[in-house]
Design a protein around this nucleic acid. Structure first.
Lengths: 234, 234
DNA sequence: TAGTGGTCTAGACCACAAA
DNA sequence: TTGTGGTCTAGACCACTAG
């Protein structure tokens, strides 16, 4: 452990403990000193040590149990945060000029598969929205959305000509829970012409089903232009 | 706000404040009461309120600034945690029996593209590992890894016949930073026959470059069988 | 410059799980 | 049973920044 006697705030303690782990001084499965002992070592109170260790536990580096003490996690499965952004904002953040074109918006009988994923009985009508997002004028993503009417009351389909539906949803029907799936597909011919790319091009499809509490809001299928990548990191 | 006078611990306060936000009582951009005021309302100290609000700020629901106060985030960009698991563990967690077969392991001149992504001068030799992961006997993923020899000293290529390289790395060369990219590709013929799938099938490719501090450890390309999906949620 | 959140202390009691 | 982390209090000082 560091022998510095400089001021140890909780971030410094976190850094120091993480260093013990990543340098291999404390190995996976090892029990580390008790909070009180670390507090004495760092010359601070147990609360301050506790905050540092709690943070490392949340990040997956430590496992803590009452009476059992704190051990270095055996399998520190890291999590990479995958952003679920506002579509136009994501394009702008990537340094491109965002564009948006509504292709279609209106009630439609839900395909059985869609209804099933939303946990709804088949045969009902949903609001079907189809829109194109552009980056610097080139087709970038196609949004295929099925929304539960009762959950999006006040949404005027005409209004979607100028404002993307995700921006309306953000302020009017925020989700509390979502399931996300990422898969590779061959670009369907019906969509490929929007992208000005050959049909069957391998491309990413992100499917998201969202709920508010336990009530389904809708299902989104976001088709990406071929070659587009999702990026994240640790 | 809830008028309950039952014991309010910090989780209850977090829940209550989140409820204000998600129900629309407090809208994006709104300034919420100061910590002291909330402490009075919940009949607790500022520390307890602070912990609840800090947690919500970390999750992206609030933005906090000294003197400026706490406001409801305007664009609560949600983050879905994408796991970076031990490959065999992920297969087991999905309910399948994991299998593993080493295809190749040895030093090899690094392709220029690989060296560039690692920030290394071209022409050097890297340790090239190719391995197949199976789920219930069926090919599931192909791991194509290029490792910097200096960062994986002590790694015995023979040993990789029984233990996957990611399990060795976890305990011997843990990463501190990684960049991850997810893309859709047409399955190359050379890999398709391992998967017993047609070449050109659309499939997911996850590329990960990892560092220890600022030194590159290696590059992983993880090819997924066609039809396989990445799943996450909020 | 004044007001807000960020952090720390010194103590206390409690919940949980290991011995 | 008992030791450990989890939480809370009442107070204090500080860092940042909006007005």
């Amino acid at each position: 452990m560091s022998k510095d006697t400089l001021p140890f705030d909780w971030k410094a303690i976190r850094r120091d403990v993480l260093e013990q782990i990543q340098s291999g001084q404390w190995k996976p499965g090892d029990k580390i000193p008790r909070e009180i002992e670390l507090a004495a070592h760092y010359d601070c109170t147990r609360s301050t040590v506790g905050r540092a260790l709690r943070d490392l536990a949340t990040a997956g580096f430590l496992e803590r149990r009452r009476k059992g003490g704190t051990i270095v996690a055996a399998n520190p499965t890291r999590k990479a945060p995958l952003e679920v952004p506002i579509l136009r904002e994501a394009i702008r953040a990537a340094g491109s000029e965002p564009g948006y074109r509504l292709l279609q918006a209106g009630p439609e009988r839900a395909p059985e598969e869609i209804a099933a994923k939303l946990g709804l009985p088949p045969g009902g009508e949903l609001l079907h929205v189809l829109a194109l997002y552009l980056a610097d004028g080139a087709a970038h993503q196609i949004e295929d959305r099925w929304l539960v009417p009762a959950m999006v009351r006040g949404l005027d389909p005409d209004h979607l000509r100028s404002q993307p539906v995700d921006e309306w949803l953000l302020h009017n029907a925020p989700l509390t829970r979502a399931k996300i799936e990422i898969e590779a597909i061959a670009l369907p011919a019906g969509l490929a012409h929007h992208f000005d790319q050959p049909a069957q091009s391998p491309s990413l499809l992100v499917t998201r089903v969202s709920w508010r509490q336990s009530k389904p809001i809708g299902l989104l299928r976001l088709y990406h232009a071929a070659g587009q990548r999702l990026k994240t990191g640790i």
